[in-house]
Amino acid sequence: MTEMLSYDFMQRALLAAVLVGITAPAVGIYLVQRRQALMGDGMGHVAMTGVGLGFIFQTSPVWMAVLVCVLGAVTMELVRSRGNQRGDIALAMLFYGGMACGKLLVSLSAQAGAGSLESYLWGSILTVAPADLITIAVLGTVVVAVTVGLRRQLFAICQDEDFARVTGLPVRTLNLLLAVMAAVTVTVAMRVVGLLLVSALMVVPVVAAQQLTRSFAATQAASIALGVVVSLAGVTGSYHLNVPSGPAIVLLAIAVFAVFSLLAAPLARRRHRAATDPGPKVCDVELPERIPGQVPKRNAEQLPGQGSSDATTPERGAGLAQ
């Protein structure tokens, strides 16, 4: 351990891992809440174009990726908020176009080496330079300040957008802000886990944590803690086993998810037992005498009070509709 920490590059790698471990789940939870878990993946694809442009113009690929990814995220958000029926196709074009464009630009650039794009696709945490670390720290701080500081507002827009609008929240601005934060996170995490696995760090700690939590606040806190633990453990493990850190982090997170979901079922059962009256063990409800010709499909064990309001609805509704 001390030997590992004596290397400058390992110190920077571990610091970067902690920052990304905090940032990715902090913003990823909102994507999961909105059932857009794969959005981060798409942004990772789009970011490749930014990396390619960085290569072409000999500027920092990270800042170029931030720029392109933010543009892509804003486009995705506009497509989503329009509720366009063919929105998925527009997104598919954006994702594939971003990836293809990135590879093309990199191959055109002067510094196209064999491993140049590789390091962005799979991450190269050991080559994190002091300047990179500052970039990651600044961007990560902004993302965490927004996603944790505006938790109630962002929770509201992801939970129920129409309702949030009626509370007077600037829904569109907040949606765009969230999209930009996700884009920034993708580029921040790019050095640690790589663009292809970026989304995993945004999603897996969240879904692992929520196996055991009941509240949103606890899920966010637990997923950030989990993100930090798996990132640190992944980097440490990859140092000792001499394997790449990105895949190590992601596989570790998935392993935690698997363990937590095994624990979840008995836990939920116990919780249910405590919270609700289980009712009688056997059905001892006497059915009213059966009228010939009545719907025979109804379950015999159903209580007479249940479901019958549904049965009366059509005729009552029809009466009013006329």
Binding site: I29, F155, S215, F216
Partner: peptide
């Protein structure tokens, strides 16, 4: 929604204004 939330958390969003 996609992430667990308590009854209190959902109702609290009505207090945002």
């Amino acid at each position: 929604s996609g992430v667990p939330a308590t009854v209190r958390e959902v109702v609290s969003t009505g207090r945002l204004p």
